[in-house]
């Protein structure tokens, strides 16, 4: 056992990298659910974003363009879900699951010629002096831009939902779509925008995997990250700050247990690996045990279809 070989600074830095994909995807899904829509297709949108971002980054040589197209790809796929559930009033759970399967297949098809190709180098923050500060430098000032963007997005979503008019309208739609409709808000249009935002975030999260964290394209490379993002939203009880906490906790446990193992520390790997899921289950149990508290947190119209004739 040699704990000294673990560098805590590196650990925290890599924790942030490991957490960013699920953070982005979970944040997007939280906004979708806040608008009253349950989109279980996060995994499909993530992997579509991963492949779109990778293809564009490789072809254009620009990771930035790759990320933009990943967001577009994710949003486009999510709008498919939007049209089906908002206009054709299909079942959200079934459509979301279908979207995951569709996204996995579509990405495999699109990525056929891109297996084993290298992604272009991503721009990394490297400010002279500041990035070299011991401890704080590597943790705070030497990441790729997406890490900062994801953190900014957490703050943006939190403030947006809490303080802006648009955010309140979105929440009103998610809480009671009939009332929002009666007040003259375009429920379907607002939900479509939320769905597209969620898709774009999931796409960014996927591209973060294929362009930075791994970085390469492999079929099925999200390997369940979308489902973790979904669980995180519930774990965070639909609060942006807690999504951040949950994502870093999850990323932290993943990276920590790998590092502990590499250092030869005898730890029960199985339990650490399953702990994030266990915590989510416990949170779910607590939430459903107390109906009044659940009502405080979960958007009241979550998963219910809306039609103006109702």
């Amino acid at each position: 056992m040699d704990l000294s070989s673990i560098n805590p600074v590196f650990l925290i830095a890599s924790l942030m990298v490991a957490a960013t994909p699920i953070l982005l995807a979970a944040l997007g899904e939280m906004v979708v659910e806040k608008a009253g829509v349950l989109n279980l297709g996060v995994e499909g949108m993530m992997i579509t974003g991963a492949v779109c971002g990778f293809i564009v980054a490789v072809e254009s040589g620009s990771p930035t363009l790759g990320f933009i197209c990943a967001a577009l790809g994710g949003a486009l796929l999510s709008l498919l879900f939007g049209v089906l559930t908002q206009f054709l009033l299909s079942n959200q759970v079934a459509t979301g699951l279908g979207l995951t399967l569709f996204g996995l297949g579509l990405s495999a098809l699109m990525g056929q010629g891109y297996i084993g190709i290298k992604a272009p180098e991503v721009f990394r923050l490297d400010i002279p002096v500041i990035s070299d500060i011991p401890v704080l430098g590597p943790i705070l000032f030497s990441h790729d831009l997406m890490v900062y963007l994801s953190l900014a997005l957490v703050a943006g979503v939190w403030a947006g939902l809490k303080y802006t008019r648009a955010g309140m309208i979105l929440r009103a739609v998610g809480e009671n779509h009939d009332a929002a409709h009666a007040l003259g808000y375009k429920v379907v249009r607002i939900r479509l925008m939320a769905i597209a935002f969620g898709g774009a975030c999931a796409g960014l999260g996927g591209a973060y995997l294929s362009l930075i964290r791994v970085p390469q394209w492999t079929e099925g490379m999200t390997a369940g990250a979308g489902w973790i993002a979904l669980a995180l939203v519930v774990f965070a009880s639909w609060k942006a700050g807690r999504v951040l906490l949950g994502a870093y906790l999850f990323g932290g446990i993943t990276v920590l247990q790998l590092n502990l193992q590499a250092a030869g520390v005898a730890i029960p790997v199985e339990y650490l690996s399953m702990s994030p899921y266990l915590i989510t289950i416990i949170v779910l149990v607590i939430i459903s045990a107390d109906k009044s508290r659940a009502a405080l947190n979960a958007p009241a119209s979550l998963g219910r279809s809306f039609h103006a004739s109702n």
Binding site: A18, R213, V214, T218, A223, L258, A262, A263
Partner: peptide, 17 residues
């Protein structure tokens, strides 16, 4: 099969020498 986790594991091992 979990490319992200496999990459993390490789990075942790490399970081430790």
């Amino acid at each position: 099969f979990d490319p992200a986790k496999e990459a993390d594991a490789a990075k942790a091992l490399i970081e430790q020498g």
